[in-house]
Amino acid sequence: MGKYILKRLVDLLPTIFVVAIIVFVITRLIPGDPAAVMLGPQASVEDIQELRDDLGLNEPLHTQFFQYIGDLVQGDFGVSLTYNQPVISLIMDRFPNTLILAISALVIALLIGIPAGIISASKQNSVMDYTVMVISLIGVSIPIFWLGVMLVLYFSVNLGWFPATGMGTMDEGFITYIKHLVLPSITLATIPMATFARITRSSMLEVISQDYIKTARAKGIKEFFVIGKHAFKNALTPILTVLGMQVSALLGGAVLTETIFSWPGMGRLIVDAIDKRDFVVVQGTVLFIAIIFVLVNLLIDVLYKIVNPRVNYSSGKGGTGK
């Protein structure tokens, strides 16, 4: 397994390199001057030139590129102009907060989405099945930034049950801490939850119709074990694929959720940096999130291997060996 993980890590290096190139290209080659964008329309030509010098934008492109890659390899994501701090330290301050939010959302999504999908599949064409499917369709279609605002309207403004903004600390007590977490986590969990319910249902329906499930039933095994043990285990691979995709949705959704709830995470950092035109922070944070996403997908690949040891990557990229 160690050898396998190492191989996958080596495979990821070109992707991370490409990700770094994309960020470089976006910031350097797209029409528009990052320095001018950062300083705004009121800036003088001299100010823009000075900032271009500071950011190294006046150097030849290839020099800029090697400097940029060299800095990245050393973990140097640049220095924020507005915070006057290295970007990596800003990211490290906020990353744990985003992680808490994303993990809570993922747990909610898995705990509700998967059982909902299983129940829906095992009672196909029942009222329960239709209810789950309608709710999950609404779930995948809902703009989470609207859902977040509506949750604030009803549960914070009207009912006063949960705080509308901010992240509690453990010093304020565990209950207060959790109360701060509830609305943002539900908001962020909605799309993954609905997606898990849909994919679990379709994957389970495919498995349930197979002969070995009929055999298990014929042998008199209780339905709970037929579904929970025999069927679910084999329906897990597509669910894992979706899990990988949902990490992207969670990281992207965090930008919006953190904005609504003033959650002090990386998403909020990006939006604040956009407001302040701190391009170095935007560039560094986006790159960091993309690298995290690539690494999480490696973790999913390893999980594949554990769930289904027949998985074989030698013939291509991703997917199962089936």
Binding site: I16, I30, V37, G253, V255, A290
Partner: peptide, 24 residues
């Protein structure tokens, strides 16, 4: 496809945000 993999590594909305920050 490596370039596409690289683009896929960005959460959709983040890629759009980054481009909008530069494009205006």
């Amino acid at each position: 496809m490596r370039t596409m993999d690289g683009l896929f590594a960005f959460p959709f909305i983040l890629l759009a945000i980054t481009l909008m920050t530069v494009l205006g």
